[in-house]
């Protein structure tokens, strides 16, 4: 009788089902119409099947975004799960598109699908990478900016997982502040 190792044929289930979205800036369409759901997955194998199939962030045109969100959460401030939330924001220099962008974005995806933030992973809604001429951005979105413990834990682990230098700080901003800001910078609620 043949004994088959289940590892060889069972896909590895993730804690959550995730949706990958793609935003392409077409000015003739509404913001929402430009936001397209690419695919959903809930296993390690299906994550890689999708990731290996699509363009790296650094190859996207300026104005495009990828967003990875838990199934049922739309990648916008208005979603009920994002409304009171905010984001840990990494702003990259133009030069970092070549050196760091793809590595940081993959690191961000692995933090999400691998549930890197322990009990605070439930506070994570998703992550977004914005490809922009003036400098790309990567952010992890969480559901409640008032959950100080969850937000700061997520920020500390995130920074460590990406291997960001100690002297580099990243800031957390509420979506409410980001959406009503008048200048180009939003004040940080937390910094790690």
């Amino acid at each position: 009788q043949e004994i088959v190792n289940p590892e060889a044929y069972i896909k590895h289930p993730l804690q959550n089902r995730w949706s990958l979205w793609f935003f392409k800036n077409d000015k003739s369409k509404t913001w929402q119409a430009n936001q397209r759901l690419i695919s959903k997955f809930d296993t390690v194998e299906d994550f890689w099947a999708l990731y290996n199939h699509i363009q790296l962030s650094s190859n996207l045109m300026s104005g495009c975004d990828y967003s990875l969100f838990k199934d049922g959460i739309e990648p916008m401030w208005e979603d009920e799960r994002n409304r009171r939330g905010g984001r840990w924001l990494i702003t990259l220099t133009k030069q970092q598109r070549r050196s760091d962008l793809d590595c940081y974005w993959l690191g961000t995806l692995l933090c999400l699908v691998g549930e890197a933030f322990d009990d605070y992973s439930d506070d994570v809604c998703g992550a977004v990478v914005n490809i922009r001429t003036k400098g790309d951005k990567i952010a992890i979105w969480t559901s409640d900016y008032e959950n100080r413990e969850a937000v700061t834990h997520i920020g500390r682990v995130y920074k460590e997982r990406l291997g960001l230098p100690m002297k580099m700080t990243i800031g957390y901003q509420s979506h409410a502040d980001t959406s009503t800001k008048s200048g180009s910078s939003t004040k940080n609620k937390f910094v790690v």
């Binding site: 060889a8 044929y9 069972i10 896909k11 590895h12 289930p13 993730l14 804690q15 390690v44 194998e45 299906d46 994550f47 890689w48 099947a49 990731y51 290996n52 690191g107 692995l110 699908v113 691998g114 549930e115 890197a116 322990d118 009990d119 992973s121 997982r161």
Partner: peptide, 20 residues
């Protein structure tokens, strides 16, 4: 408990042929 996977574990599957 949560299904947590670290970076090394996840990366090991990147180029493994997926089963159907």
């Amino acid at each position: 408990g949560k299904r947590q996977y670290d970076r090394g574990f996840l990366l090991a599957f990147q180029f493994m042929p997926a089963c159907i």
